[in-house]
Nucleic acid binder design. Structure first.
Lengths: 193, 193
DNA sequence: TCCGCTACCTGTAGAGTGGTAGGTTTCGTT
DNA sequence: AACGAAACCTACCACTCTACAGGTAGCGGA
């Protein structure tokens, strides 16, 4: 009864790949990308390392799939973001430590030389800052405190989210991530819209 | 004329160790801790990997020395911090990408399981938050916007500093780290003291 | 002058690493 | 029933990594 045999209905290729990506997310959360071995990922889905390479020919290819998965995840389609939705997002994140640990670890690694995720994060942050600026403009217009513009506020918003994540991951007991984020939003004053 | 011979005055053990720690900082900046090999550090100071192990018996011991170096670095003795000094610190950091890249990479790695720097960062952030709360209280008292307390503002301050560093490291052209930090300080209003 | 210590070295063990080559089994289709 | 492709496997290569063992050269002090 090799390869799982008759008992397991054969899972389709797409589902298998999704399984693998999920396992990769876990392993990266535990050990980072450089520390994650293909063998460890493979074992988690009941494959050999070489069996895994059948689906993703190189380690980098697997990473690309992981990053694409992330893009799919937070591409809330059409739904125009609002600031209070951001607060909910942070609250939601606080219930999924694993996934945010994965991407916090990746972000940290990505600043090192020649890291395969570097350009991904560079471009992602450029996009996110733009997107946040749009949200802020829609909601606050130019009524931000001290003559701040949405464009200059956006990097701060992103920085607070990321920075809080690290503090929270390191010490969840001491850091109330969603509460702190709401505190920050309150610093921006009341939305005009 | 082995080991450098007469030409190089024999450097004392302490200086040698300092050289090694400096090289380790560089290599960690480039490859992270897990990605940093003892051989790479050794080569940078003209030693073999085994020669390096004479000074630091394990890789973790070297990391400990690196972290201690950092503690020495930002232990501004007695000087009571002030908020505007923080702005200067950020400005200063913006001129030393290497060192902040080292510790941003380490911070990112440290959230992974069983990382040797994890407890260091956990404790460090607890200390820094406390310290920042003290600074904020001294300067703003309870005049922070929206009834924010210094204790609740401190994590935000730290988060902004860290978060901005990542954005800046990834894309220095697009992110004005010191400017953004000053923007954040302005959100806190005018210091009372 | 001898002795011991520091500062290195060579050699090597032992466990992983990503990736290639080339099989064999199983399935869906014809 | 035959066939091609997909889904995995075993075997292996060429590295790389940390660390241990056991040297040797040179210096400072007795």
């Amino acid at each position: 009864m090799p390869y799982g045999g008759v008992m397991n209905a054969r899972v389709r290729s797409g589902e298998r790949r999704a399984e693998i990506v999920g396992a990769a997310l876990e392993v990266i959360a535990e050990r980072g990308y450089r520390g994650a071995s293909l063998a460890a990922v493979a074992e988690r889905v009941g494959l050999t390392q070489q069996g895994l390479l059948h689906y993703f020919p190189t380690k980098d290819a697997l990473l690309v799939a992981v990053l694409q998965e992330r893009d799919r995840w937070d591409a809330v389609p059409d739904t125009q973001w609002r600031v209070d939705l951001l607060a909910s997002l942070v609250e939601y994140n606080a219930m999924r430590p694993a996934i945010i640990q994965t991407f916090s670890a990746l972000l940290g690694e990505s600043v090192t030389e020649g890291h395969p995720a570097r350009s991904y994060f560079t471009e992602r942050y450029a996009r996110v800052r733009e997107s946040m600026a749009t949200v802020l403009r829609a909601e606050y217009g130019d009524r931000l405190p001290n003559g701040l513009t949405p464009e200059r506020t956006a990097p701060l918003l992103v920085a607070v989210m990321d920075g809080l994540q690290y503090q929270w991951l390191l010490d969840p007991e001491s850091v109330d991530m969603p509460g702190a984020f709401r505190d920050f939003l309150r610093l921006l004053g009341e939305p005009a819209a």
